[in-house]
Amino acid sequence: MPSIGVITQRKTRGFTLLELAVYIMVVGILISVGTGMMMNNSKKPGVQATSSNEKLAASGSNLSLDAYAAPLLLFTQTHYRLPCPDTNNDGSEDCPNAATPPELLKGTLPFTTLALEQRPVDTFGNAPFYAVDFALTQLVDSATSSWDGGRLNLDDLCEKTKSRYRAAISTNRLSVIRARGLNCQAADVFNPAFVLVSGGAQDLDNINGMLDGENGSGNNCYEFSGREKSAQYDDVVHFVSMANLISQVCN
């Protein structure tokens, strides 16, 4: 039987090299697993440190067209109207002051009005084109039927948007072709709230600058958003319909 002195000596000695190596290995595995879980969690919605809207406001450039719809909708929720386009390249919206307003307004995104720090550009480095239904930039007061610059309330915005949604389709208004192969005729289009267009990498049809097809025709009609690229067309179209605007702002 070993003496008490021998037992005490064994209890007080340090780790062996083998025990220390095993300990370090276990700790390393635990750290690796914990780091992996943290990285996975950071990718989940609601855990991201910066939302897509915050990233957009911080950069304001080189983003896809659907990302630029977010600040337009945010502006609509806070101002009860859509902004007018920028027509003189100063970054601010340019709303007409006319007795007979046009059916739609065309230009580029008013990045200063939208509180973006930089001038927006598409993935090709060009300013995205922006066209909007004029009636949604200057809203009618539902109680008095008078024009009031749009700064009324959410009920007025929703009532006007719903009335535009219920109205008969017209090619005099802002229009988007419904599907591939259709034309700019009343039976072939619908009337959205606004349209964003990227002119693509090149002016392939050599007409009216970077915009190709109906996008550059100068009329009120824009191409089907899923139109395939070709030797004569490389634009990208993104739109928000009246129904989309109602569901995102009014509900």
Rank of each mutant, 00 (worst) to 15 (best):
M1H: 08
G5T: 11
G5C: 05
K11A: 15
T12F: 06
G14C: 00
F15Y: 09
T16Y: 00
L18N: 02
I24K: 09
V26D: 04
V27C: 09
I29S: 11
I29R: 03
L30H: 03
S32Y: 10
V33Y: 13
G34R: 11
T35H: 11
S42D: 14
T50P: 03
S51R: 14
S52D: 14
K55S: 09
A57E: 04
L63F: 00
S64P: 00
S64C: 00
L65M: 00
L65P: 01
A67Q: 08
A67K: 10
Y68M: 01
L72H: 03
L72M: 12
T76C: 09
Q77C: 00
Q77T: 04
Q77M: 02
T78P: 00
R81N: 02
L82Y: 05
P83N: 09
C84Y: 04
N89W: 02
D90L: 02
G91S: 07
S92Y: 10
E93Y: 05
C95S: 13
A98L: 14
P102R: 05
E103F: 06
K106F: 01
K106C: 01
L109Q: 01
F111V: 00
N126S: 13
N126I: 08
N126K: 15
F129I: 08
A131C: 13
F134G: 10
V140L: 12
V140P: 04
S142E: 07
S145L: 13
S146I: 07
S146Y: 05
D148H: 12
D148P: 01
G150S: 11
G150F: 09
N153I: 00
E159T: 14
E159D: 11
K162G: 05
K162A: 14
R164G: 03
R166T: 13
A168E: 13
A168R: 06
T171V: 15
L174Q: 04
S175Y: 01
S175A: 13
I177V: 14
R180Y: 01
G181I: 01
N183S: 10
A186Q: 10
P192D: 05
F194T: 04
G199F: 03
A201I: 02
Q202N: 13
L204V: 06
N206H: 07
G209R: 08
M210G: 06
G218A: 07
G218V: 02
C221F: 06
Y222S: 10
F224D: 14
R227P: 10
R227A: 14
K229F: 13
S230T: 15
D234H: 04
D235R: 07
V236I: 10
H238Y: 10
F239V: 10
S241N: 10
A243L: 10
S247E: 15
C250Y: 07
C250L: 03
